[in-house]
Design a binder for these strands. Sequence first.
DNA 1: AATGAATGAGCGTTCATTCAT
DNA 2: GATGAATGAACGCTCATTCAT
Lengths: 194, 194, 194, 194
Amino acid sequence: MQVKKEEIRQTIIDVATNEFMRMGYENVSMRVIAYKANTTIGNIYHYFKNKEVLLQTILIPVFDNIENLMKQHFENEIKCPLTQKEALYYAEHLEEFFDKSELRGFLDKRIVIILKLESSSLLERKEKFIEELQEHLQQHIRMKDDAHYSKIVIDVLADCLKHVLIEHDNINDAKAEFIKLFRLFCTGFIGQMK
Amino acid sequence: MQVKKEEIRQTIIDVATNEFMRMGYENVSMRVIAYKANTTIGNIYHYFKNKEVLLQTILIPVFDNIENLMKQHFENEIKCPLTQKEALYYAEHLEEFFDKSELRGFLDKRIVIILKLESSSLLERKEKFIEELQEHLQQHIRMKDDAHYSKIVIDVLADCLKHVLIEHDNINDAKAEFIKLFRLFCTGFIGQMK
Amino acid sequence: MQVKKEEIRQTIIDVATNEFMRMGYENVSMRVIAYKANTTIGNIYHYFKNKEVLLQTILIPVFDNIENLMKQHFENEIKCPLTQKEALYYAEHLEEFFDKSELRGFLDKRIVIILKLESSSLLERKEKFIEELQEHLQQHIRMKDDAHYSKIVIDVLADCLKHVLIEHDNINDAKAEFIKLFRLFCTGFIGQMK
Amino acid sequence: MQVKKEEIRQTIIDVATNEFMRMGYENVSMRVIAYKANTTIGNIYHYFKNKEVLLQTILIPVFDNIENLMKQHFENEIKCPLTQKEALYYAEHLEEFFDKSELRGFLDKRIVIILKLESSSLLERKEKFIEELQEHLQQHIRMKDDAHYSKIVIDVLADCLKHVLIEHDNINDAKAEFIKLFRLFCTGFIGQMK
DNA sequence: AATGAATGAGCGTTCATTCAT
DNA sequence: GATGAATGAACGCTCATTCAT
């Protein structure tokens, strides 16, 4: 019943990623991961020192990627800051720009895991990431953020991502719906009213 | 070491309310509640038959209240539905109307607990409440809700409430910030840009 | 709500006696006794130092009584030992002799409690009582009891008593059925066959 | 400290069987079983999903067996019903027939557990089994069972089994004593008198 | 590489009991 | 005399984790 090493390792990661996204890291037991990955708890520990390391294996690449994307995005912003008018334009035509924009990096189950993470050693890195995100958003919104809008906006982002990723297995459907939602928050609920 | 009944009972409720709001009902242990309320597990069970009943004691009054408020709100809506223009006006001057509006009932830690609730017998009541909320929102936004905007909007509401209630002990500060956030979502992020 | 002292004390004893008989001493909680006696746990402890003492209060009088009866019975036996023929006669006409015989002392809920008792400090006294009963029975059966018949017979007695006392609230009905059962065991199952 | 799987599993079953028989299923704690089986609570749950399943593992085979035996017995009975004379003969010479008779299936610790069982999902199956036993007995005794003799007889059977199985580790000794007791109840106590 | 036996801490809960009021 | 607040040990059970095989 021996399977190629990488295969089962990847299955464990895939199963854990899905479960962590849906249920939250804290609420997923090694038992169910083992069961859904058709292996045993002991074998998961063969590949990953502990639950924490399994989480890190899943999240660290996406941390690296997203931090990179944000750095690029930040640099572009400084060169040519968006005006409100431009922002509106982008929001309206997001379909065209999505894949080229740094937003593409967010449409990822693992981002949901990060944004909902409540314990683990990665919390620190999460906080740093959230802070950077907040700063970016403040750049965009360009205002004193005394109401901590940006913090909320990030939670909202997490909810939207979780929602579209759970509802739509097909990545294109997910993208389409995410874009709709993103636009909704850009222009506001009242903008939707007739 | 005996304390007046209502005192410790209220302490338990207060501690539980805070912990449930911050960590979620499922992630709070009776031991932690006992410890933070300066009592013992056994004594909590003296006041509340089980964890579930403790939760119900906390949530049922707010369920009753909020369902009432929503009914009123719904009836008012039907008599004179909001136009986009009026909505904008209300959003701009929310400070003046907040205490009279049905929104006031939402500024409550216990609403956060409800919105984040994942297990317990109250789930059914929660779902009914969420459904009604969704219907209301679809009335307001007056659109086909094919992207399930309303579901997301509710999650967003939960995040906002959680945020402002955790950050601000003072109810007025919490209110002020909630109003800001509410307005933000009404008019959109881009509207905030200069 | 103050009731005459003896009244509530007796109620507690009555409730406890019934519960102990039906469920066994070990399986009855102070909670249910308090509830069924319309009082509080604390108040039971006001009357009885602990569960053990409550049990003793119930059982000690019956211990005293039954030990007495057995002594009398033993003395009578020695004066004029039963022959098999006489025994058969008594078994056949038990209705007439029951109230005068020492058997009458056994038709008591508290005997059931004793015979089913598994823990408590009274176990020692129970064992002594059982031993005496055994000796009596060996007198009656007049045989080497290498198969410990008598021990079994006592368990059988307990079962019969429990059965008739639970099934029949009316003491006369209980007596009638107990006599039938007693006769059955005296003459054997095969004796019942046509 | 790892032991061969079946060894510890069987030890747990053996310990549990003994404890359940002696104390009754409800009065045995998993901690005690773990301690007497030289293992830990957690490890018992490694082998058995819960206490209920441990009980089922012990009892279901004996349920299957005994139900089968009773079916056979019932069929034989119908073909050639016992007369009183034959019954007496069998009772007298039970040693010779025991191993061939359906009675052999009853000389089992697990039968005692069943007969004393008060809770658990197996109760239903127990009740069905008891009912069948009662019907059989009424067949044998061939009488109106208005005093519920059969119910009592079954309790008596449980007591006898418990007694001989606890007193005699050696199965042959147990059998011998069980036969003596069985005969006693067939012919009655008075029959034993000189 | 893989299994699953084993551990111990912690969970929600019940219980007998104590004691201030 | 009566209440009920308070305690701590024990219950059945789950979990992350370790380790021999």
